[in-house]
Nucleic acid binder design. Structure first.
Lengths: 332, 332
DNA sequence: TCAATATAGTAAAACGTTTTACTTAGATAA
DNA sequence: TTATCTAAGTAAAACGTTTTACTATATTGA
């Protein structure tokens, strides 16, 4: 038989209301009584039944995290777990728990209706049309980590444009003038934002800007390699390259190595992200790091904030990327 | 106001007991009534309040997953999320939900005492002494994914020795006689089990066995490279190598490439695991794949089994690795 | 025809909290 | 002295289900 609040009350010679007040730090109980009750709770190894408390309180103190689990692909989504860790950390600090959910409409609706969770944190990749619809129409508290363009939905994301800026500014500080960019598909939002920041900063810093130095790839090793070779063998070879992904940077470094172009002496290199391929890049790359765990934390905090004060439904949030200087760039 | 079982009962002109029986597929309700109630539930968009149901039922229908989240390192634990996906999938099929928990003693004890979860799935890396203790003494339903040597604890793991066998048997089938092994530290359980299977199969298949062909490394790129160079430049160069990790295989392939030793013509290569570095290995490697998602599924199923029938506390379980043939091996 | 049995359903207790509204005893003020 | 106030605590309702024990009603068997 698990120990209940009644057992504690009986043992302490008080009513269960009193015990409840002690548990929840409510006023009206003397110091002495509080201490005694707490001591007894400890002795009996009592912890409130979370379901009973949730029922009475009309709140699960639980947030669901929504991601595409079924078709999860570690290669394309290496950060998902790290994001979740951030979410869990922030929730746990506030006494909330985290539930992992697969992104199917039925499951999501089920959670909303059964009130198993008080709110929803959605990984951007899982935000399909129907789910999007559900969130908006049901007015269920939520926040998206990633890239919805719909203004009715709050989101948290890193400032990708700033990331592009940071890269260029560092290169410019190193003395580079002719900067190139190797990105993903032209339809890739993240890559494009990075490119936008890249271009703006290039202009502001008086860097040379050429169409032919902006390469779009399909993100694979092969197409990254092709782009790298084009840049490196062109008559107007740039003196620095920014790669919008780890894999592209790896391909670039390999191509440079094969051509006998030294990094950073012949060409400087900056990559985005430090996972999963950065340890294999030679030399150790300078990189624009996205603190994905922090994104998770921020998302969780925002959502809890909104739960506490639904009236001030705050705006979306942006986190700051940072620069980690390695050996693929250096002042010249 | 959320809709409750009372609303459904009123609308259907039956008692709430009847509705409850319909919800839970219990006998004693006519076909006609069942249909009518179900229709009304659909119309009212009713779903049972999970906390209330859980309270009455004395079961949360929730399992907690325990991992080291705070100090999570994607490089050393790339599979954690995939394991969780498997767990979630299996739980969800049985109407259970998954809660993510950080591996601190206080949190774990809290979950047990508050009965927020009915059972615990522990990632092996998170199984510290105190937690281990807690599981055993409290008799809380649990299962470990990974490597506890304590027989009082049930676990699920892949058959690493079999993995080693599979590799050797494939190489032997390809016509290789002189097989080498590059593993992690001599204290690494996983690597050692693979090595054990490797040795047994080598003997059975009449392969040449030499001490100098068994290399232990600290698992890094550098030490993997050193081991590879030693093997490849030795006068008695083996004709095939099994690497116990993706990173070691990458290092090996690079070293072979530099020395001008072709894979698979000069030396054949098999690696364990397909994530995260296998796409960067040239040529595309033959590998022993561990279906970690399946490990998660199996663990979840076992735990639910045990919850249903606590009397038959089944033994630990093992999943089978499989071979994916790439271009780093071939029949000679 | 009448007892026994099945079928379809219900009333009410139980689950373990939180919370609202109330009580009591003592202190304070006039 | 008496009314008022405060501090400390309590009783009981509420939360929304499941489950147990019970009640009709219809059916069957002899």
């Amino acid at each position: 038989m698990p120990v209940t609040i009644k057992d504690v009350a009986r043992e302490a010679g008080v009513s269960i209301s009193t015990v409840s007040r002690v548990i929840n730090d409510m006023p009206g109980i003397s110091e002495a009584t509080t201490l005694r009750v707490k001591e007894i709770m400890r002795r009996l190894e009592y912890a409130p039944n979370s379901r009973a408390a949730g029922l009475a309180r009309k709140s699960a103190r639980c947030i669901a995290f929504l991601a595409k689990l079924e078709e999860f692909e570690p290669y394309t989504n290496p950060h998902l777990f790290d994001i979740m860790c951030g979410v869990q950390e922030a929730l746990s600090k506030k006494g909330y728990s985290l539930m992992l959910l697969d992104a199917t409409i039925t499951d999501v609706e089920q959670i909303m209706l059964s009130r198993a969770a008080d709110g929803l944190i959605v990984h951007g990749g899982a935000l399909t049309k129907p789910i999007h619809q559900l969130l908006v129409t049901r007015k269920f508290p939520h926040i998206v980590i990633g890239h919805p363009s719909d203004t009715r939905i709050n989101w948290v994301d890193t400032d990708n444009a700033l990331g592009g800026r940071i890269a260029v500014e560092h290169l410019s500080g190193c003395g580079c003038r002719d900067v190139a960019f190797i990105g993903a598909l032209e339809t890739d939002d993240i890559s494009n934002e990075r490119l936008a920041g890249f271009c703006a900063a290039a202009e502001e810093n008086g860097c040379e800007y050429r169409e032919s130095w902006i390469k779009h790839t399909d993100g694979t090793l092969q197409s990254g390699r092709a782009a790298a070779l084009e840049l490196l063998t062109a008559p107007d070879r740039p003196d620095a390259v920014v790669c919008s992904s780890n894999l592209l940077a790896f391909a670039f470094a390999e191509a440079a190595h094969e051509l006998g172009v030294s990094i950073p002496d012949g060409v400087q290199l900056i990559t985005f992200d430090r996972y999963p391929y950065s340890p294999l890049i030679v030399p150790e790359p300078t990189l624009v790091q996205i603190d994905v765990r922090d994104m998770g934390r921020v998302a969780a905090k925002q959502l809890l904030q909104e739960l506490k004060k639904p009236e001030l439904r705050v705006q979306s949030f942006t986190t700051l990327p940072s620069l980690i200087v390695g050996k693929s760039t250096r002042e010249i």
